[in-house]
């Protein structure tokens, strides 16, 4: 039996330097909990996978808003594992993330890895709407197959708009249902862990970052707007996280 569920988070500034969460709605397998924030004035929410998801056929989504001046940090309790559905008719699962960040607000969206298990099929869509002056730190990590396993089929699209204009639009597809060449010399070159770290900050408006190589298979690049993107490939999840963490330590972390 497939599941359709939408979890919702809304963060608002209380006007006295704190952030409140007037909306914090769990749904189905997506449980959202307020957790202790290491940073004053910032609300932290942890997505707790209450059961194994997404399975083939599931339709999951999370909507998170940080309204003007709010500071919200979202992480997860564990990696998300895309698994095959029950029976051959289950079809692909979908996972949709909709984020919006208001003027002067900060959103840190730092979930754990998305693992594409053998036989699974998942379409992931992340849409971000940023107001002018919004700040964002967003990490995406895709791991193709559990340990020693072949990958499932995974497609993702990340679309970010800033003040209504396109800032970043990236779409990838890996695995058995992806078009040919995805594992070859132009796309993955045999790597099994793929990561992106996007940092949007008004600081980059006047002082764009310089492009920089991070080892042999990762790069930090300034986008055509006030943002940098780290694109990284690695052999496994641990090495990938190491590259992204190191890159993040040198970037404005939403502050």
């Amino acid at each position: 039996m497939s599941v359709s569920a939408t979890a919702r988070i809304t963060a608002v500034a209380d006007g006295r330097g704190s952030t409140l969460l007037p909306v914090l709605e769990s749904d189905g397998p997506l449980a959202v909990r307020r957790t202790r924030s290491p940073e004053a004035g910032c609300a932290r929410v942890t997505v707790v996978g209450a059961m194994s998801a997404p399975l083939g056929g599931d339709r999951l989504s999370i909507e998170a808003r940080a309204e003007a001046g709010a500071r919200l940090s979202v992480d997860s309790a564990a990696a998300t594992v895309a698994l095959p559905g029950a029976g051959p008719e289950a079809g692909a699962a979908s996972y949709t993330i909709r984020l919006s960040v208001g003027e002067g607000a900060v959103l840190r969206w730092l979930p754990d890895q998305l693992v594409s298990a053998y036989g699974s099929e998942l379409d992931m869509v992340t849409q971000v709407e940023l107001a002018a002056g919004a700040r964002l730190v967003l990490r995406e990590e895709q791991i193709l197959g559990r340990h020693g396993e072949q990958t499932g089929s995974l497609s993702t699209r990340l679309t970010v708009r800033l003040a209504g204009r396109p800032l970043l639009d990236q779409q990838v597809a890996y695995g058995p249902t992806a078009p040919g060449g995805w594992d070859g010399a132009a796309v993955l070159g045999g790597h099994r862990a793929i990561g992106q770290l996007l940092v949007v900050h008004p600081l980059f408006e006047d002082a764009p970052a310089a492009p920089r190589l991070l080892g042999t298979d990762a790069v930090l690049t300034p986008l055509a707007g006030p943002a940098v993107l780290v694109t990284a490939l690695a052999a496994d999840a641990r090495l990938l996280r190491g590259i992204l963490d190191e890159a993040l330590s040198g970037l404005p972390n939403g502050a």
């Binding site: 679309t159 010399a185 796309v187 690049t221 490939l233």
Partner: peptide, 18 residues
């Protein structure tokens, strides 16, 4: 419009330019 991208082409392009 599609936005299909290739991580390795982006990474290698910066390495090549340098």
């Amino acid at each position: 419009l599609p936005a299909a991208s290739a991580p390795l082409l982006d990474i290698a392009a910066e390495a090549h330019a340098a």
